[in-house]
Design a binder for these strands. Structure first.
Length: 844
RNA sequence: GAGUGUAUAGCUCAGUGGUAGAGCGCUACGUUGACAUCGUAGAGGUCGUAGGUUCAAACCCUAUUGCACUCACCA
C-alpha cells in the first residue's frame, strides 16, 4: 500500500483540478474576488493564508450545496513595480529609456511575474476559476477606471488643487498619508539666532529651534504665541534670515506652543504642514526651495547651496552658520519615510488630483448596517477613520499605472473616458486648434483596486445583479483603510449599496518570534518550499489552525510539524479502514441497521462535530473549527472508537462495523475537505470511487450513552492503575452490568474482565467498582493513588457544598446552574462514599 | 499625544460569567496487526497588578503596568 511520503510525492506531479471548468455560469450562486497579489515577485506566506481562508470558505459552501465563483487576478501596484523595474535596468534610468520604452520593459516584467504568481497560486491547490482572471491594467478594466473617474469628476467629487503633501524625492512623486511610515532617528536640534533689524530692549536676536535649518531659505516669518510674555515686545519687529539677509516679520499665532523649543518658531510655508497653515492665515508667501529630487533651488537659495541635498545643506550650514548658532543639541526625532522607497519625505506644495471623500464616507458608515466585519472590533477603527476622512490624493508622478483621464487643451481641461471621447469633446467645444495633451500623471494604484469587486464582474460580462455585492471579502487587516474602505466608498458611489456582504480580516504571518518577515532579517518562510516538501494540505492546515480572526500568526516549524502529523494521522486512519473493509465498501448505509452502541455513538459524535464546525464557520472561527476536527479525528475517532472497532470487527458485529467505518470515513472526508482538500479528496475517491460532493444528512439512531461512559470509565481506571502496578484481569461489579461491552474493554485495555468472584483490590469507577486482581505488594501504591484522588474530590466537594449552602446563591443563580451543582455534588458524594467504603476495608 | 488590541502551563496559543484547555517540550511506562510520524499516564496555573460589579469573574467595569498595532506628531 502507498505510504504517506509517496502520496505527497505523487500529488506534486499531478495538478488537481478542483473546480469543474465546464461549469455553466448559471450554476454559480455567488462570487468572491481574490485580493489581487502585486506583480512584484513571489507569493509570500501571507498570500497563502489569505488564499486558504477563502478556499476554506468556498469549499465549506460547496459541501453545503452552494457554488461560489472565485475570480483571481493581479495588481499592477504602481510604485512598487516601477521601483523594481527601475532597479532592473540599472545603470540606465527610466529617463534614459523614455516613457515608451520603459513601459515596454514594465509590461515584460508584468508578463513574467504574473505568470509566476499564477503558477504559485495554482500550486496551492485552491479552487480559483482561471477562466475569469483579470489584471488591474487590462484595457477593459481601464475603461471602468476611466468611467469611474469621469463620474466622480462630474459629480464634483474629483478636483485639482495645490496642496502640501509628502513628496518622495527619490521617486519624484507625491504619496498619500497612508504611504508614510515614521521612523525614529538621531538628529540635531539647531538653536539659530535670527538678528533683529533693530535692537529691542537690549536684545539683538530672536532664537528659534529647528531640526531642519536648510529650510530657512524659505522662511517667511518668525511666529510666537500671542500670550508669550518673553516675546511680547518683539512682535511686529523684523529679523534677517542669516546668510541671505532677507527681512521677515515676527508675527503671532495661537498654534505656536510656548513650551516647545524656544517658543519662537520659524515659519516656512513651503515645507512644513503647520507652517503652511500659519502662512495661509497670515498671508505669507509660500516658496518652494526644493526641486523635485529634493535639491535646494530657486532664487531664495544662496548660490553655494543650490543643487545640494537637504542633508548636505544641513551639514554645510552647521559650519557656515557658526556666528548665528546659539547651540546644537543631539535629539531623537521622528522622520517621515516613504513606505516603498525608504527615503526621507519632504513636505512640498504641488498641484494634484483629489477625491472629495466626505459624502462617500458618510455612505460607507451607513453601509455598516448591511455589511458585517469580522472580527467586529475593526468596526471601531473603520468608523474612526471614516469620521476623520481626509481628501484622497489620487495622482502620482509615476509612469506605471492608469494615466489620468484628463486632457489639456490650452487652458481648457477635458475629462473623458477615452482619447477618442476627449478628441470628440475638443471638436464640440471648438478647441481643435490646440493640441490635446493627456495628463502626465497616473492614478494611485488603490484607485483601480477599489473597483475590483465589480470590475471583475462587469469586464467578464457576468450578471451584476447576481454577483454584486460579492458574497464576502477576505483580506489582511493591514489594508483595511488602503483597500477595504475605498472599495466600500467607490463601490457605493459607482454601483450603489455595498461591495460585499461580509468582510473577514485576518492577521499577518510573522516569524517564530513575532517579528515581521523580511528579506533583510532573513526570516522569510517561503510557502512554495513548504508546498514542495510537505504538500499544500500541510501548509494549509498549519495556517488555518492558527488563524484567529484579526490576529497575527507566529509561524515556524512547530506549526508545520503539527499539521504534518495530523495529515499522517488521517492517512493512517484511511489505511486502517481500507485494510479492514477489504473491498466491501458501502457507499450508502441505512443507519437504522446499526445496532451496537459503540457504532451508534461514533455516528452521533460525527454529527455533533459537523454541527459544531458549522457554527464556527458562521462566525469565521476557523481556528476553532480546526481544533474541533482535530480533536474529533485524533482523540474521539482514532484513540477511542477505532480501538473498540478492532474488537467489533472480529465479532458478530463485523458487518455493521464495516458499514459504520465507511459512513464515518465518507463523512469525515467531507468534513475534512475544506481543511485538507487534497488528502480528503483522494481518500474519498479511492474508497468510494467519486469526488466529494454535498454533505450527507445523518439521522443517527438513539443509543445508550451510559454504556459508553461505562467503557471509558473502566478503561481509564485500568490505565490509571496500570501506571503503578501490573495485573492482567479485573472483575466488575455494579447494579448496571453491561456485559456486552466487556469484549470492547478487554480489547482496548488489554486486560481481561472476569465475572466470577475474586479477591483483589477494589477501585472506584464511574458506576461501581472494579476489583483488580493484583498481589499484596502492589497494594500500597494503589492506596496512595486512591488517597490522592480522595483528597482532590473532597476539596471539590467542600467548595461546591459551601456554594450550595449559600442563601444568596440559591436565590440568585439560575435554575440550570443550581441543577448542575446539585448533580455534581451527588456525583462527588457518590465517588467519595465509594472511596470511603474502600478505605474502611483497608483497616480490616 | 489619541485610539485599538493583548497579558492564561517552560514555549506557542485557544477559552462562550458557573469543574482551567490544546499543541510542542518535560517525566514515567509501553512497539498488542492503521500509525514510535505512535499510544497511555503524570508533573506543571493565586489566568499581568490593584480595586469594583455579581450568589459566582480568566471572562464584565475602573485604574495601573508591560507589549503590539493604528492614527497624529520634523520648532
Amino acid at each position: 500500500m502507498l505510504n504517506y511520503a509517496d502520496f505527497i510525492k505523487n500529488n506534486k506531479m499531478e495538478h488537481v483540478s478542483l473546480f469543474d471548468e465546464s461549469m455553466d455560469i448559471n450554476e454559480y450562486d455567488g462570487l468572491i474576488v481574490l485580493p489581487p497579489p502585486n506583480i512584484t515577485g513571489n507569493l509570500h506566506i501571507g498570500h497563502a493564508l489569505n488564499a486558504f481562508i477563502q478556499d476554506f470558505r468556498v469549499r465549506i459552501e460547496k459541501t453545503k450545496g452552494k457554488n461560489i465563483l472565485w475570480i483571481p487576478g493581479t495588481d499592477h501596484s504602481g510604485i512598487a513595480t516601477q521601483i523594481l523595474v527601475e532597479k532592473s535596468i540599472l545603470p540606465l534610468t527610466r529617463m534614459d529609456l523614455g516613457r515608451e520604452i520603459f513601459m515596454d520593459k514594465v509590461w515584460e516584467w508584468k508578463e513574467k511575474y504574473q505568470a509566476n504568481i499564477y503558477s504559485q497560486l495554482k500550486s496551492l491547490n485552491i479552487s480559483l476559476n482561471w477562466n475569469f482572471a483579470k489584471f488591474t491594467m487590462d484595457s477593459d478594466v481601464q475603461s471602468e477606471v476611466y468611467d469611474t473617474f469621469y463620474k466622480l469628476y462630474h459629480a464634483d467629487l474629483i478636483y485639482q488643487a495645490k496642496k502640501m503633501l509628502y513628496w518622495d524625492t527619490q521617486l519624484e512623486t507625491a504619496v498619500s498619508d497612508l504611504e508614510v511610515k515614521f521612523s525614529t532617528v538621531k538628529g540635531k536640534m539647531f538653536y539659530i539666532k535670527y538678528p533683529l533689524t533693530e535692537e529691542c530692549n537690549g536684545q539683538h536676536f530672536i532664537t528659534v529651534a529647528t531640526t531642519r535649518p536648510e529650510t530657512m531659505f524659505g522662511d517667511k516669518a518668525i511666529a510666537v504665541n500671542p500670550s508669550d510674555d518673553r516675546y511680547r515686545d518683539l512682535v511686529g519687529k523684523k529679523v534677517c534670515i542669516p546668510m541671505t539677509n532677507i527681512e521677515i516679520p515676527i508675527i503671532t499665532d495661537e498654534r505656536c506652543e510656548i513650551s516647545k523649543g524656544t517658543g519662537a518658531v520659524k515659519v516656512t510655508p513651503g515645507h512644513d504642514f503647520l507652517d503652511f497653515d500659519i502662512g495661509k492665515d497670515n498671508s505669507l508667501q509660500s516658496v518652494d526651495i526644493l526641486d523635485s529630487s529634493g535639491r535646494l533651488s530657486g532664487k531664495f537659495v544662496p548660490k553655494e547651496y543650490v543643487g545640494l541635498s537637504s542633508i548636505d545643506a544641513r551639514e554645510k550650514l552647521e559650519t557656515d552658520l557658526m556666528n548665528f548658532i546659539d547651540h546644537i543639541e543631539d535629539v531623537e526625532h521622528q522622520v517621515p519615510l516613504g513606505e516603498r522607497s525608504g527615503t526621507v519625505l519632504e513636505p512640498k506644495v504641488t498641484m494634484q488630483w483629489f477625491v472629495d471623500t466626505k459624502s462617500m464616507a458618510e455612505k460607507a458608515l451607513e453601509a455598516l448596517d448591511r455589511m458585517n466585519i469580522f472580527p467586529d472590533y475593526f468596526v471601531k477603527l473603520y468608523k474612526n477613520w471614516m469620521n476623520n476622512i481626509q481628501p484622497w490624493c489620487i495622482s502620482r508622478q509615476l509612469w506605471w499605472g492608469h494615466r489620468i483621464p484628463v486632457w489639456y487643451c490650452g487652458d481648457n481641461i477635458i475629462v473623458a473616458r477615452s482619447q477618442e471621447e476627449a478628441q470628440q469633446k475638443a471638436i464640440e467645444n471648438n478647441l481643435v486648434h490646440y493640441t490635446l495633451k493627456q495628463d502626465e500623471d497616473v492614478l494611485d494604484t488603490w484607485f483601480s483596486s477599489a473597483l475590483w469587486p465589480f470590475v471583475t464582474v462587469t469586464t467578464n460580462d457576468l450578471p451584476l445583479n447576481k454577483f454584486y455585492p460579492n458574497e464576502f471579502l477576505v483580506t489582511g487587516h493591514d489594508i483595511l483603510f488602503f483597500w477595504v474602505a475605498r472599495m466600500v466608498m467607490l463601490g457605493g458611489f459607482v454601483k450603489g449599496g455595498i461591495p460585499f456582504k461580509e468582510v473577514y480580516l485576518h492577521g499577518l504571518v510573522q516569524d517564530d518570534f513575532g517579528k515581521k518577515m523580511s528579506k533583510s532579517k532573513n526570516n522569510v518562510v517561503d510557502p512554495m518550499k513548504i508546498v514542495d516538501e510537505e504538500g499544500s494540505d500541510v501548509l494549509r492546515f498549519a495556517l488555518l489552525y492558527h488563524s484567529v480572526p484579526g490576529k497575527n500568526i507566529k509561524f515556524g516549524d512547530k506549526n508545520i510539524e503539527h499539521a504534518r502529523h495530523f495529515c499522517i494521522k488521517i492517512w493512517n486512519l484511511y489505511n486502517f479502514i481500507k485494510h479492514n473493509v477489504d473491498g466491501t465498501v458501502y457507499t450508502k448505509v441505512d443507519l437504522s441497521s446499526i445496532e451496537h452502541d459503540w457504532n451508534k455513538w461514533i455516528l452521533s459524535e460525527l454529527q455533533t462535530c459537523s454541527a459544531e464546525i458549522n457554527d464556527c464557520v458562521q462566525n469565521w472561527e476557523i481556528h476553532r473549527a480546526s481544533s474541533i476536527i482535530y480533536h474529533f479525528t485524533w482523540d474521539v475517532l482514532c484513540n477511542w472508537y477505532l480501538e473498540g472497532a478492532k474488537f467489533l470487527l472480529k465479532s458478530d458485529f463485523q458487518e455493521e462495523t464495516i458499514k459504520t467505518l465507511c459512513v464515518v470515513m465518507k463523512n469525515l472526508a467531507t468534513i475534512l475537505y475544506p481543511f485538507i482538500p487534497i488528502l480528503s479528496s483522494f481518500i474519498h475517491r479511492d474508497l468510494f470511487g467519486k469526488n466529494i460532493d454535498k454533505m450527507e444528512m445523518l439521522l443517527c439512531p438513539d443509543f445508550n450513552y451510559d454504556k459508553i461512559l461505562f467503557v471509558k470509565s473502566v478503561i481509564e481506571a485500568v490505565r490509571f492503575c496500570k501506571t503503578v502496578v501490573t495485573f492482567s484481569s479485573i472483575r466488575y461489579s455494579s447494579e448496571k452490568n453491561y456485559q456486552d461491552m466487556y469484549g470492547l474493554i478487554e480489547k482496548i485495555s488489554g486486560i481481561s474482565v472476569i465475572s466470577e468472584h475474586v479477591d483483589g483490590f477494589d477501585y472506584p469507577i464511574h458506576d461501581g467498582f472494579i476489583t483488580i486482581v493484583v498481589n499484596e505488594d502492589a497494594i500500597d501504591l494503589l492506596k496512595e493513588k486512591i488517597i490522592k484522588k480522595y483528597s482532590e474530590l473532597s476539596e471539590d466537594y467542600k467548595r461546591l457544598l459551601a456554594r450550595q449552602n449559600s442563601d444568596e446563591f440559591i436565590q440568585n443563580a439560575p435554575r440550570s446552574v443550581l441543577h448542575d451543582v446539585s448533580n455534581r455534588l451527588i456525583f462527588l458524594e457518590n465517588e467519595i462514599n465509594k472511596i470511603k467504603k474502600i478505605m474502611k476495608m483497608w483497616d480490616n
